[in-house]
């Protein structure tokens, strides 16, 4: 219930008008949105029980490793409700397959659709979504971690919350099933990071400082 309360309201995209190139306009709009989402994500992380008690260096490591996974849980969740084949980055930024292909995000599109299909089939509840998001951060396998015991306790707290929740619904197998979706989430996030790095390095798409710093940490 704490995670449900601290879940930030979805952001809206600010449409970029700086260029006539419609693909570039979409990318600039998307990168601006992601940059602002990152800011919100960092504020959100501090409110997850146990996170602020970690060493500052470990907080940084977890965020640097797990930020894209946490953001993609949100995208996949928002896209569930939308029928059709769109990725819902924001209520006013929905990209279909053709748009993703035109903007160099075909690979990301395919990976995210795969993840979404998995989540959709599982019919995730809001409680599960917010816990999965926090677990993606806690379980990001940051290396090195200065205080592994504290990180372990942080993970245990979230795991226990998930198990308690599923027990209350008499869904004994559900926690394990959710944990088994984490590898696909990791894989999808890696592809997303590669896609944005490629756009920046090879196609010179300008990227805001915070987003670039977080992408570079994963490069």
């Amino acid at each position: 219930s704490h995670l449900l309360l601290t879940e930030p309201a979805p952001l809206a995209a600010n449409q970029d008008n700086s260029t006539n190139d419609s693909s570039l306009r979409i990318l600039l709009t998307l990168c601006d949105l992601l940059n602002r989402e990152l800011l919100v994500l960092i504020g959100w992380a501090k409110q997850i029980p146990g996170f602020s008690g970690l060493l500052l260096v470990d907080q940084m490591s977890l965020l640097q490793s797990g930020w894209m996974e946490a953001l993609l849980v949100g995208v996949a969740w928002r896209s569930q409700g939308a029928g059709g084949d769109e990725l819902v980055f924001a209520g006013n930024l929905r990209l279909d397959e053709a748009q993703c292909r035109a903007t160099g995000l075909a690979d990301l599109y395919e990976a995210l659709r795969h993840l979404m299909a998995k989540y959709r089939a599982m019919k995730l509840s809001p409680e599960e979504v917010v816990t999965l998001k926090a677990m993606a951060l806690a379980n990001s396998d940051a290396d090195p971690v200065d205080c592994p015991d504290s990180v372990q306790r942080f993970q245990d707290g979230l795991h226990e919350a998930l198990q308690d929740y599923e027990s209350s619904r008499r869904e004994q197998r559900r926690a394990g099933r959710l944990l088994m979706t984490l590898p696909l989430l990791r894989q999808t996030a890696d592809r997303a990071v590669q896609a944005f790095l490629r756009l920046h390095r090879h196609h010179r798409v300008p990227i805001h400082k915070l987003l670039l710093e977080m992408l570079d940490a994963k490069a």
Binding site: I42, L210, A217
Partner: peptide, 15 residues
């Protein structure tokens, strides 16, 4: 750490 100065600063802010 110099490379990750924005994240560092954001985490240090209390709010």
């Amino acid at each position: 750490k110099e490379k990750h100065k924005i994240l560092h600063r954001l985490l240090q802010n209390s709010t």
